Amino acid sequence: MRRLGDENLDTTVLSDAMLLIRKDLTEPDAMDIEGYYKFMASLPLSNDVQFIKDNYDPSTVILTQAELKTIRERNEW
């Protein structure tokens, strides 16, 4: 499968994007987003959380059932 993206891992395919999805499928709030940033910063990887904050704005998207199914299968949940 070909994934569309660039050197910053930007993508036009929602199922390939970095998504915050709550288990109850309600929209994440500011606390969820900040919690995710803190989680990313705590990982033992090179996570430039400030770059993400500086260059990307959280946005609400609506996934199709097929996209949600792909994400659930990929992430085993």
Results as ranks from 00 to 15, higher is better:
L68P: 08
P58Q: 02
E67P: 08
E76A: 14
G35S: 05
S42T: 04
G5S: 11
A30P: 13
D6R: 15
P44D: 14
D32Q: 04
Y37H: 09
N55K: 13
L25K: 10
D16P: 06
T64E: 01
P44Q: 13
N8G: 06
I33G: 03
L63K: 00
F51R: 13
N47D: 06
F39G: 11
L9K: 14
P28D: 09
F39N: 12
D24W: 00
T26D: 08
T70W: 03
E34H: 05
E7K: 14
S46N: 15
S15R: 12
F39E: 11
L20N: 07
R74Y: 09
F51W: 12
Q65T: 14
E67Y: 00
Q50S: 14
T60S: 09
E73I: 12
I62C: 06
M1S: 13
M40K: 14
K23F: 00
V61D: 13
R22H: 01
K23N: 03
S46I: 12
E67C: 04
K38Q: 11
E67S: 08
L45Q: 15
M40Y: 01
L63G: 07
K23R: 05
L43M: 11
D48P: 10
L25F: 03
L43R: 10
G5R: 14
Q50H: 05
D6V: 08
T60F: 02
R3P: 09
T70S: 08
E34R: 09
E27D: 12
L25E: 05
D24Y: 03
I71A: 05
K69Q: 06
Y56S: 07
L14I: 03
L63A: 07
M18D: 13
N47Q: 15
L4S: 12
P44S: 15
M31V: 03
P28F: 01
R2T: 12
T70H: 07
I21M: 00
I33N: 02
M31E: 03
P58G: 11
D57R: 13
S59G: 09
